[in-house]
Amino acid sequence: MGLLAEFEIDCEVLPFVAVLETVPDATIEVEMQLNHGDTPLFFAYVTADEQDAVERAFDAVSFVGEYTLIGEAGGTRRYQVVPRVSMEAHMGGVVDDLGGLRALAGAEAIIDHIEVTRTGWVQAGWFADHDALDEFRTFWQANGGFTLRRLTRSGEPEPPGDGLTDPQREALRTAYELGYFEVPRRASLERVADELDIGASAASERIRRAQTHLVETTVASTWPPLPE
């Protein structure tokens, strides 16, 4: 039976981490397509108060070659990103075991979620067995840092957790503590954004996405479909 795991990777040279150094209020989630030879294709979902600042960061960082805006919804833009160099070439100055890095692409695992942080990535996905997960654990413990957040067997109930990202959870908690959800409201969106040290549109997007996720995974899943 397979495993479902979520873990933090501590490695500041991972793609897009440098973008957050320039635009710290941004939220970036990425998908990788590994069927493009040595250089994977990325799709980046970026939420930021100043999207132009994100594109300037794309222009400045060494990893990003070409990028194309392919969609926008609310405060989130979706970019297709073609790297300038391979992962190995980009990370070779920090990661010693480049063969091990290449081997992870062939591991019996499917990574279906990557969140970029200021110190690396948070990854979540499916692993065929403990050996497959240990490939990731062993490599990143030797080449940066690895912290397991959550582990369950496929088909078993997940341990307590809400499935929110850390920025989403922080935004909800801050908004709640300041009285943003009270009637009448005791705090404005701008007040919440100031407390989070991000822009108002970024704060609004985080709260909206967090609320949508909680509704979808709790009450919405128990409702019958609406009549057409």
Rank of each mutant, 00 (worst) to 15 (best):
L3R: 05
E6H: 09
E6V: 06
E8A: 14
V17G: 06
V19W: 05
E21L: 15
T22S: 14
P24A: 03
P24N: 03
D25N: 07
I28V: 07
V30D: 06
E31G: 10
M32R: 15
Q33C: 15
N35E: 12
N35F: 11
F42W: 15
F43S: 05
A48H: 02
D52L: 15
A53D: 09
A53Y: 04
A53E: 09
R56G: 08
R56K: 15
R56W: 13
D59V: 04
D59Q: 10
V61D: 10
V61A: 12
V61M: 13
E66Q: 12
Y67M: 09
L69W: 14
I70T: 06
E72H: 13
A73Y: 14
A73W: 09
R77A: 10
V81Y: 08
V81N: 04
R84L: 12
V85A: 14
M91A: 04
V94T: 12
V95H: 08
D96S: 13
D96T: 09
L98I: 09
G100K: 08
G100L: 02
L101H: 07
A105D: 15
A107D: 03
A107I: 06
A107Q: 12
A109R: 00
H113S: 11
I114N: 05
E115H: 09
T119D: 09
W121D: 00
V122F: 04
F127D: 02
A128F: 14
D134Q: 01
E135D: 06
R137I: 01
T138V: 06
F139W: 04
W140Y: 00
G144A: 00
F146C: 01
R149V: 10
R150W: 11
T152E: 10
S154H: 14
S154E: 12
S154R: 13
E156K: 10
P159Q: 08
G163S: 01
L164G: 02
L164R: 01
Q168A: 02
R169T: 01
A171H: 00
L172I: 00
T174Y: 10
A175W: 03
A175N: 02
L178N: 08
L178Q: 02
F181M: 02
R185F: 04
R185T: 03
S188L: 08
S188I: 01
R191P: 03
D194R: 08
A200R: 10
S201E: 06
A203V: 00
S204K: 15
E205I: 00
R206A: 04
R206C: 07
I207Y: 10
R208W: 12
T217Y: 12
V219S: 14
V219H: 09
S221C: 14
T222I: 05
W223V: 07
W223A: 11
